[in-house]
Design a protein around this nucleic acid. Structure first.
Length: 803
RNA sequence: GCCGUUGUGGCGGAAUUGGCAGACGCGCUGGACUCAAAAUCCAGUGGUGGCAACACCGUGUGGGUUCGACUCCCACCGACGGCACCA
């Protein structure tokens, strides 16, 4: 009887469901293992072959840990709010909730067909009011602690359709949908003060078991820098400008100043002659995106304001310019320009004929800026000092003269938390006509998203919720009228804490039970795509730290170990996409070859963390191997083959024990591709053997089970074992079987292999050298030459150096 | 431009601590089975030369360290991903 994957996979999936094999309890007597996949956005496209890669990896680890006596929590859920649903709803006139639920059902069915050992009783959905009640609750806590505030922030604005656009909806400065030219416009937004946690978000990275590259990206994103704030008085004015610099030591070299065009002080200091030029300049840059202002335009632009700043250290009068290379959102939105020692300032100074004054020796600043270290010149009391000393001395001078102070800055900006969208968690806030703002009382949460039959833009830049007057307008007991917040939360909100809810998903009283949180946190393994390296992981860490401060969770960090799976590319080595026609649908693979084949193939393709191309031949190879495993044990009539016996002639002892060792170690390190390769070697050896000792077959099936659980369960019972394999103790190996009495050693001459010999394991150095010298081929290379040196490592090799 | 990742047979990849480069799979070649084919099983398979033993070349390129380098160091080139003119 051939290997019938469809029958077998259906049978065991039903068995696991009926027996609740993977339902997890809070048995705290066992060590715990918490494995989480980054939950998917249930798009209308359905599952992609990239999804099962990470899911299989965490599933293998979960199954492996169950066999090793761990209490394993392995859940799945849906990140189901999001822009595509809203766009689709606008286009078709449907409510996003309806087809989102259909998409979720489709995803669940597809994921279940892969035989993943999730505890489906813990399934969560970010759009479920029982879930988002707690998302709203966290927001309210943030608000109460002063970490959520309203502020005018720049957004992408379509001036004709009067809607706010996401960055991804803006293509070449135009709206993807309407084609209208997009402007930057300041709009009232809810903002979360993530910058209050900046130091901790950097410092606590050190203890995490994350890829170094991801940690580095987070550090760069947060961008902590140490420098100084310097205050410049403005000539013929009472105003002052504060600038931020990482190089206060170059203060004597400052030759002009630049304010961001949006800087508050510009209007106050601009002279009448320059007013029009400043206005015009602002207009030209207003339509530019950040990208256009920076990367796409290498040619520096700017306008003189007519005003001058006074350098506190030497009284120099410095012209004040505005230029878009200075950003309002970083530092103080103003800089002192030292063109001799900064690339950008140099370029700007050259273009506009501003003076360039060297204050550090080492380069030729008529040619290029010098940014290296060196002794200071033209700098009064700093002359002759190096960079570090001069920085300290300048800061001391600034502080003594009330002209500045040491300052740490972050590149990280506060998190714009509101979206002008319908399909998101409502922000539980009411704006009253008396000018006050209050939270929706905690006992009234969740604030439900009202059902909308037809979504229309509000026309005011507000979300479509502004059209729903019944929901929008509220009246207090004292008759004061109010209006609900029409902004909703971003998709990042629900995904910033979902791994906590899995721990206690049905709790109506609190976000999750503290004792359960204490037992299960942190997440021991978190797997997902590298595209979330910064934003999602940073936001989730921020919320977690906030919840830690509140005493809700007892750990500082949410994810102890993080692994990023690589991308699965199309057969042409390009990213899979509909337009390229290289998309592979996992449903087709499961139907034709089976889920076990898909799992084995995706794990065998290469290291989990690397991108690798899909191959049609590759998948058939994996299927062929599972066929081979089946036929090794089962004959044409569907019976266990007679050569599976209790008699052990010993010829498989070594390879079996090697295989158990290698697969176990590879699993511990998530090296799935080499684990599978070792099992293939074992099967190849088993095919050559007359007798197959049943104990070895049982052990082998256990090794196979995490990778290909359905076929493993089936062969397991056919080997006479009780169903099911999921919690059976992992096999061990006999280390004494791994060592041979003899070893093969190699003979080298000048580092090149010239011969080999088989010797007893405990052979000594001298006899190895003697054997080497006797070797015919070695003699070809050493006779007539002087032996200069001999290196011998017992049991490994002899290297004779001749010259 | 900057940052990150990455370069090994025809292809995916292995070599975990500096010690036989190419495990395993795909593909290809040959054999067995078959009337034949498919499937399956067995064997071979980095390149060049040689009947062979074996020799030379070979891990993106050029240098270096070392008895010995895919592995360590320096410089460069290509591919992929991300993006901040961050003062």
């Amino acid at each position: 009887m051939p290997y019938e994957h469809q029958k077998i996979e259906q049978k065991w999936q039903k068995y696991w469901d009926d027996n609740q094999t993977f339902a997890t309890n809070d048995d705290t007597s066992k060590p715990k293992y918490y494995a989480v996949d980054m939950f998917p956005y249930p798009s209308g496209q359905g599952l992609h072959v990239g999804h099962p890669e990470g899911y299989t990896a965490t599933d293998i680890m979960s199954r492996f840990k169950r066999s090793n006596g761990y209490n394993v929590l392995h859940p799945m859920g849906w990140d189901a709010f999001g822009l595509p649903a809203e766009q689709y709803a606008m286009k078709t006139g449907h409510n996003p909730a309806d087809f989102t639920n259909q998409n979720v059902d489709h995803f669940r069915e597809q994921i279940k067909s892969l035989g993943l050992s999730y505890d489906w009783n813990r399934e969560i959905n970010t759009t479920d009011p029982k879930y988002y009640k707690w998302t709203q609750w966290i927001f309210e806590k943030l608000y109460e602690k002063g970490l959520a505030y309203e502020s005018n922030m720049m957004v992408n604005w379509d001036p004709i359709d009067r809607v706010v656009l996401a960055n991804e909806e803006v293509i070449d400065g135009k709206s993807e949908r309407s084609g209208n030219k997009v402007e930057r416009k300041a709009l009232r937004q809810w903002v979360l003060k993530i910058t209050a946690y900046a130091d901790r978000l950097v410092d606590d990275l050190d203890d995490l078991d994350w890829p170094e590259a991801i940690k580095e990206q987070q550090r760069n994103w947060i961008g902590r820098s140490k420098g100084a704030a310097v205050v410049f008085n403005i000539a013929e004015s009472d105003e002052k400008v504060e600038v931020y610099t990482t190089r206060p030591d170059t203060l004597f070299g400052a030759s002009y100043m630049v304010l961001a065009p949006e800087h508050k002080l510009v209007d106050a200091i601009v002279t009448d002659e320059q007013k029009q030029a400043v206005l015009d300049y602002r207009t030209t840059i207003s339509s530019k995106s950040d990208l256009e202002r920076t990367d796409l335009n290498k040619d520096k632009t700017g306008v003189f304001t007519g005003a001058y700043g006074i350098n506190p250290i030497n009284g120099d009068k410095l012209p004040i310019w505005i230029a878009d290379y200075v950003l309002a959102s970083y530092g103080t939105g103003a800089i002192m320009a030292v063109p001799a020692h900064d690339d950008r300032d140099f370029e700007f100074a050259k273009k506009f004929g501003l003076s360039i004054k060297p204050v550090i020796s080492g380069g030729d600043v008529t040619e290029a800026p010098y940014t290296g270290d060196g002794l200071h010149i033209n700098s009064d009391f700093l002359n002759g000092l190096d960079k570090a000393t001069a920085i300290d001395k300048t800061i001391a001078w600034l502080e003594a003269n009330q002209s500045g102070h040491a300052q740490t800055n972050f590149r990280l900006r506060d998190w714009i938390f509101s979206r002008q969208r319908y399909w998101g968690e409502p922000i539980p806030v009411i704006h009253w006509e008396d000018g006050t703002t209050t939270l929706v009382p905690e006992n009234e949460l969740p604030l439900l998203l009202p059902h909308a039959t037809e979504l229309r833009p509000s026309g005011s830049g507000e979300s479509p919720l502004a059209n729903l007057t019944d929901w929008l307008e509220v009246t207090r007991e004292d008759g004061v009228k109010g209006r609900r917040e029409t902004n909703t939360m971003p998709q990042w909100a629900g995904s910033s804490w979902y791994f906590l809810r899995y721990i206690d998903p049905h709790n109506e009283e609190q976000l999750a039970d503290p004792d359960k949180l204490k037992y299960w946190m942190n997440v021991d393994l978190y797997v997902g795509g590298a595209e979330h390296a910064v934003l999602h992981l940073l936001y989730a860490r921020f919320w977690h730290k906030f919840l830690y401060d509140l005493g809700v969770v007892s750990t500082k960090e949410p994810f102890q170990k993080l692994v990023n799976q690589g991308m699965i590319l199309g057969a042409n080595h390009e990213k899979m996409s509909k337009s390229k026609g290289n998309v592979v649908n996992p449903d087709d693979i499961v139907a034709e070859f089976g889920a076990d084949t898909l799992r084995v193939y995706e794990m065998f393709m290469g290291p989990l963390t690397q991108s690798k191309p899909w191959s049609e031949e590759g998948i058939t190879g994996s299927r062929r191997w599972l066929d081979r495993v089946w036929r090794l044990l089962i004959d044409d009539e569907g019976k266990l083959r007679d050569h599976v016996t209790t008699y052990n002639p010993g010829n498989l002892d070594k390879i079996y024990n090697q295989t158990v060792k290698k697969v176990t170690e590879d699993l511990e390190n998530m090296r799935f591709n080499t684990a599978i390769s070792q099992m293939m070697v074992f099967v190849n050896e088993a095919y050559k053997s007359e007798a197959l000792p049943i104990d070895y077959m049982i052990g082998f099936i256990q090794l196979l089970a995490p990778f290909a659980p359905h076929i493993a369960e089936e062969l397991w019972v056919r080997l006479g074992q009780d169903a099911s394999i999921s919690y059976v103790t992992w096999p061990s190996y006999d280390a004494t079987q791994l060592v041979d009495d003899t070893v093969e050693i190699i003979f080298q001459v000048n580092g090149k292999v010239r011969g080999k010999a088989t010797v007893t394991r405990d052979v000594d150095k001298d006899s190895m050298i003697a054997l080497a010298k006797e070797d015919d081929n070695v003699q070809n290379f050493i006779t007539g030459k002087t032996v200069r040196k001999i290196i011998a490592v017992p049991g490994k090799f002899v290297n004779i150096v001749v010259g």
